[in-house]
Design a protein around this nucleic acid. Structure first.
Length: 303
DNA sequence: AATCTGATCAACCGCCCCCTC
DNA sequence: GGAGGGGGCGGTTGATCAGAT
């Protein structure tokens, strides 16, 4: 049972040295603090929430003696102080989930965040703007355009899938588990599409199919840390990149031209590299921290 | 070593929706 | 029904840091 938030104390009067034009407004908000939060403010907010619970943020701020707006308190709590906030880099699983959900819902950050426990909408939004949108700019594409979505599906998503596999095969017992809603992921349409796209374009530019790397050949005993992938990627004993009914063999010797044709018919295969007015350095240079974006094979054909 | 540049992310802003009165 | 306030959301800004020059 949370205590009731006490009535807001009277505002202290204060003097201002120069007020002139916006004097009245200054008096109203002049005491409000802005900018980075101090440790003391954080402590006050945490204690106040522990006592009164979340919600009624304006009252909470005043009850805590914080010279912050309710909105500011809410944001600080939700984006930073809340105990279950996950910090650190997004895992490949999380990145994959973000890309997929964004293609589904667009900039509905909070909705996307709801499927990534511990991650905030702000964090996801920042990720999208700093990492993903940057790639769109460098490709001279609109980040919401179909061609860029295709590019994501063709190159980036398969990479993430591969990373997930690599992670799991290198630490098959550890649960790097994405705790995202597996039912959501399993309903996502990307799986066969993106692999086919990757194959399609890789083939057209003469590079080896990326996903046909040995990581697809994993032992039967291995299980995916990602439940949704378990029934797709981890159909292991066939040495294939199996995708349930729409199974697609990524081994280049088993290249499925019919699958390509179907993708082509769906209108996605018109993404040709020549449409991507991108400089090699753009893809390779400034995202070196995350080699997922390092798409060497994209450029093989130019050599 | 100093300066520049770009990346990152916390925080703010403005709009909108919903609820209450 | 509509006015007002609280809260949520997406967009944007600005401080800081790291790497490049």
């Amino acid at each position: 049972m949370k205590a009731a938030i006490p009535a807001a104390p009277e505002k202290e009067s204060h003097s201002k040295e120069e007020g002139q034009e916006e004097e009245e407004e200054e008096e109203e908000v002049g005491e409000l603090r802005r900018g980075p939060w101090t440790l003391e403010e954080d402590t006050l907010l945490i204690h106040s929430i522990a006592r009164y619970g979340e919600g009624r943020w304006n009252s909470l701020a005043e009850a805590a003696g914080l010279k912050r707006t309710g909105k500011s308190c809410r944001l600080r709590w939700l984006n930073y102080l809340k105990p279950d906030i996950k910090r650190g880099n997004l895992t490949p699983q999380e990145q994959l989930m973000i890309l997929e959900l964004h293609s589904k819902w667009g900039n509905r950050w909070s909705k996307i965040a709801a499927h990534l426990p511990g991650r905030t909408d702000n964090e996801i939004k920042n990720y999208w703007r700093t990492r993903v949108q940057k790639q769109a700019r460098q490709l001279n594409m609109e980040s919401n355009s179909q061609s860029f979505i295709d590019a994501i599906r063709c190159f980036y998503m398969p990479r993430l899938v591969q990373k997930i596999e690599q992670n799991s095969s290198s630490s098959s017992s550890s649960s790097t588990a994405i705790d995202a809603d597996s039912s959501t992921f399993s309903s996502l349409p990307h799986k066969s599409i993106m692999i086919n796209h990757a194959e399609n374009i890789s083939n057209s530019i003469g590079s080896p199919p990326r996903i046909s790397s040995p990581v697809a050949n994993i032992s039967e005993s291995q299980t995916s840390p990602y439940p949704a992938l378990q029934e797709t990627v981890y159909n292991s004993n066939k040495q294939e990149f199996s995708l349930r009914d729409d199974c697609y063999y990524v081994d280049s010797s088993d290249y499925d031209m019919e699958a390509l044709a179907s993708i082509s018919a769906a209108g996605a295969s018109d993404l040709l590299l020549s449409d991507c007015h991108v400089a090699r350095s753009n893809w390779l240079g400034d995202v070196s921290a995350d080699d997922t974006w390092n798409l060497d094979e994209l450029w093989q054909f130019r050599k």
